[in-house]
Amino acid sequence: MKIRFTLNREPVEIEAEPNLLVADLLRDRLGLTGTHVGCDTSQCGACVVHLDGKPVKSCTLLAPALDGAVLLTIEGLTGPGANRLHPMQKAFHEHHGLQCGFCTPGMVMTAVAFAEANPSPSDGEVRHALEGNICRCTGYQNIVASVIAGAAAMHAPSAGE
């Protein structure tokens, strides 16, 4: 079937079987390997992308759900230009919010959606928001610090420049 959608601000049209999962479409067919597949059972959150602005797990999403929708992946967070970092990515870098980095794309995508509506979240609010994202290295301390800093940076007057 034909599926038309917006991927990282560009219109895309693909031909796919309905049983194609969005995570596989992104990684295997479109070369966007920033979206990671960890558990492949919708538990770990490494595959989180934004569907019409909302975080969803792309390993548990059929490609037909993309038809007419707007999809944003970790590659599209910053818009065009090489090596630019979104304020949330910068915060993860500065606060060392990762060790192996496998969970980071999903963490960042969940965090960005959360921070858009929560400019100055508490530690507890961040932990609640990250319940669907599992990290097996850090113990979360620095991830929480990164999200709090990233949320502040996203809402700082100079953000978006």
């Binding site: 919708s42 959150g45 989180v48 569907l51 909302k54 975080p55 969803v56 797990k57 548990t60 999403l61 969940t110 959606a113 959360f114 928001a129 319940e131 669907g132 994202n133």
Partner: peptide, 9 residues
């Protein structure tokens, strides 16, 4: 229920 991504779907 679940987590934010589960609640969105």
């Amino acid at each position: 229920i679940g987590d934010p991504a589960v609640r969105n779907r």
